[in-house]
């Protein structure tokens, strides 16, 4: 069981309720898009699922366990959060070597994921000199390092050029086809429409829709999205 299940998840920051009683499921073997306008609570939700933010109420379970209870978190769940979590003075390869060491992953995986995200030639340069797209690829490499069954990716398409977008789409499809659970947040709707099997849409921290793209019933994802998030 490698599904993600979110039940009654709530986060209050003082008087502000960022995420409000959210309930949805993310099944294995499919790509689930996690959509919402800026500030809808997407990142907060993903960070709660990963144990970085403590929920005010509710649970987010991965394969039936809280993230902190996973015996080998990195080998179970791969996460891409923001493209800024790098020490600028470190090389891309060293960044991954450090993660491999914390994750209890064989260091041979470092070369494998560098190859996979097509960063091998830049691996020895300092991350401070990377472009946004290269950082995003390095983040993806880090997420894939532990060969996890579950992937949680926050805005993975940020900073990628059209070729990079197409590459990412193929990668996600392959990963889902291998039976992995893939949860991808995004606000690039045209990209999402081409990539995902189903969507979870939130607005102001509240669930607006969870289900297949077809079930939205509008002509386009954009029309449905704008209608669902206009209130």
């Amino acid at each position: 069981m490698t599904d993600i299940s979110v039940r009654g998840l709530t986060k209050r920051f003082g008087p502000v309720t960022a995420v409000d009683d959210l309930t949805f499921d993310v099944p294995a073997g499919r790509i689930t898009g996690f959509l919402g306008p800026n500030g809808a609570g997407k990142t907060t939700t993903l960070r709660m699922a990963l144990g970085l933010i403590t929920p005010s109420a509710g649970t987010a379970l991965i394969g039936g366990r809280r993230y902190a209870e996973l015996p080998h978190p990195r080998r179970s769940v791969g996460a891409l959060l923001e493209a800024t979590g790098f020490h600028p003075g470190r090389s891309g390869r060293d960044h991954l070597r450090i993660l491999a060491s914390t994750a209890d992953v064989d260091s041979g995986r470092v070369e494998a994921v560098l190859e996979l995200v097509e960063l091998t030639s830049a691996a020895d340069r300092r991350v401070g000199g990377y472009s946004l797209g290269m950082r995003q690829r390095l983040g993806l490499a880090a997420a894939l390092l532990g060969d996890p069954r579950v992937l949680v990716l926050d805005e993975p398409a940020n900073g990628l050029d059209p070729a990079g977008m197409a590459w990412l789409r193929r990668l996600l499809r392959d990963l889902a086809a291998e039976g992995r659970t893939v949860l991808v947040s995004s606000h690039v709707l045209s990209e999402v429409a081409q990539t995902v099997d189903q969507v979870v849409i939130i607005n102001n921290g509240v669930l607006r829709y969870a289900g297949t793209l077809d079930g939205l019933g509008s002509d386009s994802l954009e029309a449905a999205f704008l209608e669902l998030t206009s209130r």
Binding site: G51, L52, P73, T84, L99, A142
Partner: peptide, 18 residues
């Protein structure tokens, strides 16, 4: 504090949630 500054602390806690 340096890990918080560069946000590498996120990765650290993802690897070691305790």
């Amino acid at each position: 504090a340096g890990e918080y500054r560069h946000k590498t602390i996120t990765d650290t806690y993802l690897s070691t949630p305790r």
